[in-house]
């Protein structure tokens, strides 16, 4: 289906800056009208055939540029509970990439060319969000060492303690991406999102962006969230045991109970840059603007810049030498 403008018939999309539905054709706002049809096989506007990836729930017609939403992939069992609408606009995402690029000295000059930037797309990435209740018991021995000198004698005092801890931790919405094409590590790094902006799912927020439905069920992905809960609990425990020179654990018991799970769509700008036969993918958090990726290195720049540094250092060294001679 497609959102059409009831004034002019143009494609109405969600505009993060206006926080409204916007028709670029007649500059009208909130003039959207859902027009169904086509399905995943053809464009609901011009009827051209669509190239749709297996889990894709929203996309763009290559022919007329209209943004489509495939209803059957965001309804029924695939209905997301929550959606975080895009906050960062395309221009802002470009700016974030630009800032990142500006201090990446060895990045190829063509990194942010107009042509490739135009292919950057906003994407709603499927996430499962897990709630946990964790109970953790920890006990062990710790020592505190104090040293001081009095006259010609150095004293070392070692105090031994028995440490007991029990903690209850309630985790809310530990996110795990449910998209196979998104790199797990990069999706972990793009966190955190500010959950205050989460809303009940509304299909119109997807207009103007790409989207995916979950690729795997919440049970299959649960172990990743479970691990995060364990890691965070362990860190919290260690933060509560402070001031000791040495620590030795004697007993530990962690119970992780999963409570509920939410299915949410989270905004990510995806920028793909091809350099010397390899594709480098950058992600910009669609809410916070945080940039994640792997920057390609231009060898000519690397050599040229390093040689320049060498040359300038030689000049600096020579100047220092000259100054020391006249001092």
């Amino acid at each position: 289906m497609i959102y059409k403008c009831h004034n002019c018939g143009g494609n109405v999309v969600y505009d993060p800056q206006r926080k409204k539905m916007y028709c670029a054709h007649c500059e009208g706002t909130d003039s959207e009208e859902p027009v169904s049809g086509g399905g995943a096989a053809q464009c609901a506007s011009c009827g051209a055939p669509l190239q749709i990836k297996p889990f894709q729930s929203a996309g763009k017609c290559e022919h007329c540029g209209c943004y489509q939403i495939f209803e059957e992939r965001v309804s029924g069992q695939f209905t997301p509970h929550l959606i975080l609408p895009f906050v960062v606009s395309r221009q802002e995402a470009e700016q974030k990439l630009n800032t990142e690029f500006s201090w990446r000295t060895f990045a190829p000059a063509s990194f942010l060319s107009r042509a490739t930037l135009q292919k950057m797309e906003g994407m709603y990435v499927p996430f499962f969000m897990y709630d946990y209740h964790v109970h953790y018991d920890w006990s062990g021995k710790g020592t505190k060492v104090r040293a001081w000198t009095s006259g010609d004698t150095e004293y070392t005092e070692t105090s031994y303690y028995h440490i007991n801890r029990s903690m209850e931790v309630d985790f809310t919405r530990i996110p795990v991406d449910a998209s196979n094409q998104m790199d797990d590590k990069k999706m972990d790094l793009i966190e955190p999102y500010d959950y205050w902006a989460l809303e009940q799912f509304q299909m119109k927020y997807m207009s103007g962006f790409f989207g995916e439905m979950y690729n795997q069920g919440s049970e299959q992905l649960e172990p990743r969230a479970h691990k995060k809960a364990e890691r965070d609990t362990e860190e919290l425990m260690m933060q509560s045991i402070v001031g000791y020179s040495t620590l030795a654990n004697e007993y530990r018991n962690m119970n992780v109970n999963q409570k509920t799970v939410d299915y949410a769509l989270m905004p990510v700008w995806v920028y793909e840059y091809a350099y010397r036969g390899e594709t480098y993918t950058f992600y910009v958090n669609g809410q916070t603007g945080k940039v994640i990726g792997e920057m390609p290195v231009s060898k000519p720049k690397m050599i040229g810049y390093s040689a320049s540094v060498f040359g300038f250092m030689m000049v600096i060294g020579q100047l220092v030498r000259m100054i020391m001679e006249v001092v």
Binding site: F171, T172, I190, P192, L236, F282, M295
Partner: peptide, 14 residues
Amino acid sequence: KNVGTRTTASNTYV
């Protein structure tokens, strides 16, 4: 080459 570091803390989701 890597852009971006972990910005979540152990209590982010607590």
